[in-house]
């Protein structure tokens, strides 16, 4: 599936909850459980994403011309957010990852986490995933 198609799928999932933010967050927490977990020995300091109040480890690889991300986080809402990003951006061509506008985050009601004042580092996660893609497609 393309990035846009996966984004659409996620938007539809979250739309089911309407204004029920508790439901949305519970779903986000559930999505965290589906995150492809980074190997324990890759959880090194240089794979920690800076700017997160919780610790987030991200590993990026290029396999058969596509980006493959594995990650982990010690806060479960953060883990849910990484899981959503990984679901959208993993197994995509690096050039598509770099171009992705990820507007769906706003649509599913997680826009508040994109504010630079939020210490969760969603912005830092996106930046790291994109810069890794950029360096791997060169």
């Amino acid at each position: 599936m393309s990035i846009e198609e996966i984004e659409k799928e996620i938007i539809e999932e979250f739309e089911l909850f309407g204004d029920d933010w508790e439901g949305k967050y519970e779903h986000l927490i559930d999505l965290g459980k589906s995150l492809p977990i980074i190997k324990e020995d890759l959880k090194t300091d240089d794979r920690i994403i800076k700017g997160c109040q919780s610790r987030v480890w991200l590993n990026s690889e290029l396999i058969d011309g596509k980006m493959v991300y594995t990650a982990d986080a010690d806060a479960i809402i953060t883990k849910g957010m990484v899981a959503v990003l990984v679901r959208v951006l993993s197994n995509q061509k690096p050039e598509d990852v770099v171009k992705a506008d990820l507007k769906f985050i706003e649509v599913i009601g997680l826009k508040e986490h994109l504010s630079p004042t939020r210490a969760n580092g969603l912005v830092s996660m996106i930046n790291k995933m994109k810069t890794d893609a950029l360096s791997l497609c060169r």
Binding site: Y25, S54, I76, I77, T78
Partner: peptide, 21 residues
């Protein structure tokens, strides 16, 4: 077993301002 960030984020959704970290 829970991260302070998670607790603080959800309390904020209920209008309760706390500090975490």
């Amino acid at each position: 077993g829970q991260h302070p960030f998670d607790v603080g984020t959800l309390l904020d959704k209920y209008g309760i301002a706390v500090r975490t970290g």
